[in-house]
Amino acid sequence: MNIFRLAGDMTHLASVLVLLLKIHTIKSCAGISLKTQELYALVFATRYLDIFTDFISLYNTTMKLIFLGSSFSIVWYIRNHKIVSRSYDKSQDTFRHYFLIIPCLLLALLVNEKFTFKEVMWAFSIYLEAVAILPQLVLLQRTRNIDNLTGQYVFLLGAYRALYILNWIYRYFTETHYVHWITWVSGLVQTLLYADFFYYYFESWKNNKKLQLPA
């Protein structure tokens, strides 16, 4: 494992911790898209089908369990927790899951590394992760007052993706036969989706102003 990959995983972990902190301590999920969180839960459930069949490392299994556990518990909190669910504004979070899930599923059936259930599900999870942030980005645009934790959460998610690109470049030059078009192209698309957000995030940081995305 290289430093970019580890930094990417740690950034991803930090994003989840920031979101859990908001939910647990502040008891609020204001500005958080349940749609995006549900898509992430689906992403991890379909990608980590190998958790009990292929052992890679203790690190790998632990991280998979953390991402599975945290994504499902976040969804549970937003939907069912007495106090947290009150801060969820359903009327703003209107993105339709199906617009993302169905095209990703069709693409996974057509473009995959092998036409088996596990491989199609893996490709599906890669495609879905690439676009799963869209409901969250739409919600951010509609939110006039983006609180710091929400801004940091999305920033950390974007940073995680950018670090994964550096990881792939590093692996490409240091490992033999390391070529993975499915993850590379989807990962690039995923990172580009954050470009606009990054721009406004850094602007607000530079000018010491509250983060606000133009409608």
């Binding site: 990959r5 790998n60 991402f67 490992e175 033999t176 036969h177 993850t183």
Partner: peptide, 10 residues
């Protein structure tokens, strides 16, 4: 481990 395996990524 297989060096060309992308499935070791999360």
């Amino acid at each position: 481990t297989d060096p060309s395996n992308a499935k070791d990524e999360l």
